[in-house]
Amino acid sequence: MATRYVVVGGGIIGLATAQWITVTRPDAEVTVLEKESRLAAHQTGHNSGVIHAGVYYRPGSLKARLCTAGNRSMVDFCTEHGIPVDVCGKLIVATDQAELPRLRALHERAVANGLPVRMIGPDETAGYEPAVACVGALRVASTAIVDFTAVCATLARLAERAGARIRLGVRVTGIRATGRTQVVDTTDGEVPADVLVNCAGLHADRVARLAGVRPPARIVPFRGEYYELRRDRRDLIRGLVYPVPDPRFPFLGVHLTRMIDGSVHAGPNAVLALAREGYSWGRIDPRDVAGLVGYPGLWRLAGRHLGYGLTEVRRSLSKRRFTASLARLVPGLTEDDLVPTHAGVRAQAIARDGSLVDDFLIVRNDRQVHVLNAPSPAATSSLEIARHVVAQLPT
């Protein structure tokens, strides 16, 4: 009898996992359950479309290894399947002397991760980005841009062609064991599984609890808001321009990103969302708010980083402050150059002691694997995360 694999979540990690199961276990029965009416509806469909190189991540960590490998495999995958991709490189820019030590530390980390990077001065930076002002920059040649929704469409097509079944508009409501079989209760009936893979993103910890697993951390949603440059001001930016990040946080700071369609997005910030799918201040989910208020890990995090959080809130509420952050990188940028665009929500796992989980968190429990922390660079790393997950699955 064929092994029945059920993948919860139709974002890029769930789809990549399902597709890789069909490649490596062609006799398997694979079902993907996605609660929305379309694929890539949340984190995957709201991100900046950057294929990251792996600069920021601790050498030897899952993020470092899977992102570096994922950069190559994602570009190769897109090239093979005719998905538009541009290996444009990016600049990480120091705007004052005080940031140079952190920039050099990033350079050392990138070299340790085996990346093609160079420290460059203001004159060479101007050759890449004439509108940028800096005292130094890190040139990361292997960074690329793509539409990850298009990647998902291809993964879904490949998986279905190999026999996988993708069920949209089906929400998981319970998971129970009957002998060696797991019964996944959904809004559209029962789905039997021999092996369960949880790639539910913003709801991954909840799905894990339904499956009888106590997650070591809880998902806390952070909204990232974007502006974009007016069409007639897109020539300010040729590629990707990032600030030197604060190493205490997983967020990279507001930056400027040329998208694969030619638009230029500015952002994101990082504010606590009042719903796991809270794409605006007006979206409030009482259940999610109660979960946040009752979680000691969030209070401990807030106690350590209250100033940072308030700065992000002010920037969210003030276009002037948002513009000022970007103008540190591009002094010619004004408020009139920016128009609001979409927002995304990052599923960030936070431990009970208030620490941010800074690596991918993947937990195996008997015949289950739970992907419990997979924010950026998860889209970049998705093909490699899928290989890592499938290697742990029982047959």
Rank of each mutant, 00 (worst) to 15 (best):
R314E: 14
L329W: 00
G307H: 10
S325R: 11
A349G: 14
V345T: 03
S318M: 09
A327M: 07
D336V: 05
T341S: 07
R321H: 13
G303Y: 05
L310Y: 06
R315L: 11
H305C: 04
A302I: 15
D336Q: 13
L333T: 04
T323F: 00
L310E: 00
A327C: 10
L326N: 06
V345F: 02
P331W: 09
R328Q: 15
D337L: 10
V345N: 04
R346A: 15
L338D: 05
G344S: 01
V313D: 04
V313F: 13
T323E: 07
R346G: 15
A343P: 01
V330W: 00
L329P: 02
G307K: 10
V345K: 02
A302V: 15
E335A: 14
T334V: 08
A302M: 15
P340R: 10
D336Y: 05
P340K: 03
H342Y: 15
S325L: 14
L306T: 13
R320S: 15
E335W: 05
T311C: 06
R346H: 08
L329D: 02
H305T: 07
K319S: 09
P340G: 03
G307R: 15
Y308A: 13
T323G: 00
T341L: 03
R321I: 14
V313Y: 08
L333D: 05
A324L: 08
H342E: 06
D337N: 02
A349R: 06
V345W: 00
A343T: 09
R328M: 07
A327L: 06
E312A: 13
V339H: 07
R346F: 07
R328S: 09
L326W: 05
R314Q: 12
A349N: 04
A324Q: 14
Y308D: 08
G303L: 13
V345S: 04
E312S: 12
H342W: 12
T311N: 14
G309T: 11
L338P: 12
A302K: 09
L306Q: 03
R315E: 10
R315F: 07
R304E: 09
L326P: 01
G307A: 13
P331Q: 08
H305Y: 14
D337C: 13
R328A: 12
L310D: 00
S316G: 10
R321W: 10
L317Q: 11
G309D: 06
A302Y: 09
G303M: 11
E335T: 10
P331N: 05
G307Q: 09
A343L: 00
L306E: 03
R315S: 15
G309Y: 03
